[in-house]
């Protein structure tokens, strides 16, 4: 069956980390923008030439996250064609097929709520103060599949510090753009639009918590949550909200979209937890996309050393 004949693009061709990092350095020298794109297209065996989708503009990352995993990257093609982004539709291929309707420029991000320096920023101005880094994280979907994704982004903590939250700021709430013209899926009441998510302040300030603007050294494709998304690698994927337009500091624990949709299955924390099944299926194992055999799911998606202390004393079967 499919085992005998993998897709025409060998994973090694498109995911080899060395190649992609070499290219990153090369392009860093060559400069981003037009020259970089032309060079990328000219180099043989590279992503943009072999994968048959639109090449995104390059992003130069200034540093490597100390948390980067050495695990094999999930192929770019899978990362950008197998998505849950209900704003485009509930099918896994809907986001990649319909993503052209999203216009991530111009884009405004509003920071408000309990903070001393609120503001509304053009995306470019919002990102400008931050050095971009490479963050290679495991991504575990609540549906029991997982990927390894090389994000480009910066810690959410930097944004929070810039906003100077007040003592009343106990949680951070995030909101996705509401625009049924750009998001055809929002015409259907599958979820209560706009999508919202939330983190406790200490979770939001954690150095693992990321605002991503790219993946695989390129600007985020629309289907992956362009132009700005959250990445919280120790929580199920739906916590990592996409296409963010608002970041609010609030005093009360926000009710997130999935909590509202099915409260018995989705809680505020939604930490990856192999021992607690609040969904109908088992969370003990996961299918790493591209692998035949499933693998054991790790507590906090393998980030326990970094985050377990945040939940000391909590009953995670109750506070799921």
């Amino acid at each position: 069956m499919y085992i005998g004949k993998p897709s025409d693009i060998k994973p090694s061709e498109i995911t080899d980390r060395k190649v992609y990092q070499q290219r990153r350095r090369f392009l860093g020298v060559a400069g981003v923008s037009a020259a970089g794109l032309a060079a990328a297209a000219a180099l043989p065996g590279l992503l943009s030439a072999s994968r048959g989708v639109h090449a995104q503009a390059r992003l130069a990352a200034a540093y490597q996250s100390p948390f980067n995993t050495k695990e094999a990257l999930t192929p770019y093609k899978d990362v950008t064609t197998y998505n849950n982004f209900y704003e485009f539709g509930v099918g896994k291929s809907d986001p990649a097929e319909l993503a052209a309707s999203l216009k991530p420029h111009p884009w405004t991000v509003t920071v408000d709520g309990a903070c001393a320096s609120p503001g509304a920023y053009h995306l470019e101005d919002f990102i400008k103060p931050h050095a971009l880094g490479d963050y290679v994280y495991r991504h575990r979907c609540v549906e029991a599949w997982s990927m390894v994704i090389p994000w480009v982004g910066f810690p959410l903590a930097e944004v929070i510090k810039r906003a100077r939250p007040t003592g009343a700021a106990k949680f951070v709430q995030f909101t996705t753009l509401l625009d049924p013209k750009m998001f055809p899926g929002q015409r259907f009441p599958v979820l209560d639009w706009p999508y919202t998510e939330g983190l406790r302040m200490d979770e939001a300030l954690h150095p693992l918590t990321l605002l991503a603007v790219g993946l695989y050294g390129e600007v985020l494709p629309n289907q992956n949550g362009a132009p700005l998304r959250l990445v919280v690698p120790w929580k199920y994927g739906f916590k990592s909200i996409k296409s963010i337009v608002r970041i609010s500091f609030v005093e009360q624990q926000p009710i997130t979209t999935w909590m509202r949709a099915v409260p018995s299955r989705y809680g505020f924390y939604s930490n990856v937890n192999p021992d607690v099944d609040t969904v109908p299926w088992s969370q003990r194992y996961e299918r790493r996309i591209g692998n035949l055999f499933k693998q054991k799911t790790l507590m906090f998606n393998g980030y326990g050393a970094q985050v377990a202390h945040l939940y000391a004393g909590m009953n995670l079967a109750k506070d799921y």
Binding site: Y2, G4, K5, T81, L292
Partner: peptide
Amino acid sequence: QGWLAYTGNLGANPIG
């Protein structure tokens, strides 16, 4: 399904 499997066109999660 057999053809899609053989040609590797069942998508990112062929078993699913």
